[in-house]
Nucleic acid binder design. Structure first.
Lengths: 337, 337
DNA sequence: CTGAAAGCGCTTACAG
DNA sequence: CTGAAAGCGCTTACAG
């Protein structure tokens, strides 16, 4: 096993100093053309690459972005990471991914691990526990130590930093509005608890749409589920115990589960029950009937967040914090009329 | 913004040398209890954490594992990463994720980027292009430079290194065998091209099962698709132009597409057409009918690969290379009888 | 028991 | 035009 060649190796073999090698390879005007050419040729021949770790230590800059998300197996977050990866790569940054698994403790631990020099900044989507606890010291600490944070999707108003969110309130409003326009009178909502920023906002949008249409809000047909891919029994109860003609669901999974239960009861989708989900992932396309969804443009969320963190890392970090809102769009498929 | 506190800061403030601080914090027996206590208390008070980058440079070890996969939005790879993340975290390693996007060039570029000191070893699933080109110099280089590689799922026989694969041949065999036992006579196969290791092996298992059952192999009902989530027209043609009573599909997506096309033609699944897919992801559970699949235990692939790379990093790296085979299991759902 | 020195691989201000 | 020195933040063999 040949170890990687270093400046020292080159300097020894060519009988010049390390500084000369370093400057020659960086094409410094201080060095004569002749020496530069020789050294560059040698470096090329032996495939010299500067050591990232040494550069990081010297420059106090790692060119790594730390990403902490609750999980990765569902379309939304993996797609966000996809967007992060792409933009990061284009700018010469690497992406270190950590999963909180919806746990506050793991989120904090991951942050601390990465904060000790491994990364230049964070892109974070808060765990459920963190949102429940409303405990954000770990974020504040990072920011005050000069490690900027961009919060995505699951954000906290309390934290002063850059954010990328979708227009959850308006997205839900538009979806419900569409359902009502198509004739729905009793629209149910299946979403996350209020302590989650997105759950709360979507509920608000849902209620506003009903009110604007002169329809009554019935808390009995608003279902708030903790488990993002569970809730079978609760959804079944919702559908079996209430007269409803449409559902807005906050995840693809809730929506598909609802459709399945409806079919089991002999209810026709979309004729008797129209369904709209959130997150335009593969599930929506694979479901039958295919699912109408509020697309969150999750890739774009990731790339926007990455642009923001890079701007803060490379540009003026004294600019005021921004909150970018990615517009949702309603993607029409078979589950609505 | 307070910068992170360093050994130097502590040493200045406490009027001791940096070496003493370092030793005290590592609880060295060289240092008196009194000094240790004082220094440790101070460090705790000011929340001292050793700088990872400096440690990496000093120890020639980063505690980062580089993961390069073709993509991340589908269940299989995100689930593999999930497994990697978990085991890595348990052992104090971070995971740097790069996506090749099925491109040879990006795969090579990502490897080079990470190989310059950012990571201690690689976990890689080859891009389609790499498998097509049969060009593995980047892998050989890494290994010969002392950066071990564990190849997962999409592997290359030509490369001498640790590998984690599933029993693709046997998994396909079992699935087809099951279909035949349930009465199928004409089993179609929808899979990847032969240049992909998994495509080739599954085809072999499929054919072996047919032969063992005394059935003829008909190349007309073997469909090899390049685009992992496309192929609508080809699958339609397959179903419309042939008499078939079962399908084994190499991805969830192929399977669901087939079911959808079948339903469009008025063919009942599973009564008239039984369908089995590969990868037991969310799509399989959300499809209707729900999909019987060959579960690849993708999380386990990831955790096994991580254990192997860590063992090689921390243990004897002179052990012979191993290939671990993760057994698949057939998960029965509604798309088969 | 404490500290000065060397070194991990690099860059850059400063001498010569 | 070239090189010695200092330094990024740490560890550790060696002196005292």
């Amino acid at each position: 096993m040949r170890r990687k060649v270093t400046l020292k190796d080159i300097s020894k073999n060519m009988n010049v100093s390390v500084s000369t090698v370093s400057k020659a390879l960086r094409d410094s005007p201080e060095i004569s053309e002749k020496t530069k050419n020789e050294i560059q040729a040698y470096a090329k021949k032996y495939n010299y690459r500067p050591n990232n770790i040494a550069l990081s230590l010297k420059n106090q800059k790692t060119n790594n972005i730390g990403v902490i998300v609750p999980e990765i197996v569902h379309h939304f977050f993996s797609s966000v990471i996809n967007g992060v990866e792409r933009v990061a790569g284009e700018h010469g940054y690497n992406v270190i991914v950590c999963l909180s698994g919806e746990s506050f403790e793991k989120e904090v631990k991951n942050m601390q691990m990465l904060a000790n020099g491994s990364i230049d900044g964070f892109i974070i989507s808060l765990s459920k526990e963190t949102q429940k606890k409303q405990s954000f010291d770990h974020l504040e600490d990072s920011i005050s130590h000069g490690l900027p944070v961009v919060l995505v999707d699951r954000v906290a108003d309390e934290v002063d930093c850059d954010k990328v969110i979708i227009d959850d309130e308006q997205g839900a409003y538009n979806a419900v509005n569409y359902l009502i326009k198509k004739g729905a009178k009793r629209v149910a909502l299946i979403t996350m608890p209020d302590y989650m920023s997105v759950g709360k906002l979507r509920t608000l949008g849902y209620k506003r749409a009903l009110k604007d249409a002169g329809l009554k809000v019935d808390e009995a047909i608003i279902l708030k589920l903790e488990d993002l891919d569970g809730g079978y029994d609760e959804i079944k109860h919702l559908i079996y115990s209430n007269e409803i003609d449409a559902i807005l669901a906050s995840t693809e999974f809730f929506a598909v589960t609802a459709m399945k239960i409806a079919r089991g009861k002999g209810i026709k989708v979309p004729e008797e029950l129209a369904v709209i989900g959130f997150t335009d992932g593969i599930i929506s396309q694979c479901a039958s009937p295919t699912l109408t969804t509020v697309s969150q443009h999750s890739q774009e969320i990731g790339s926007m967040a990455t642009q923001m963190i890079i701007k803060r890392l490379e540009g003026k970090d004294d600019e005021p914090y921004r909150t970018e809102v990615i517009k949702t769009t309603l993607v029409h498929r078979e589950s609505t009329l």
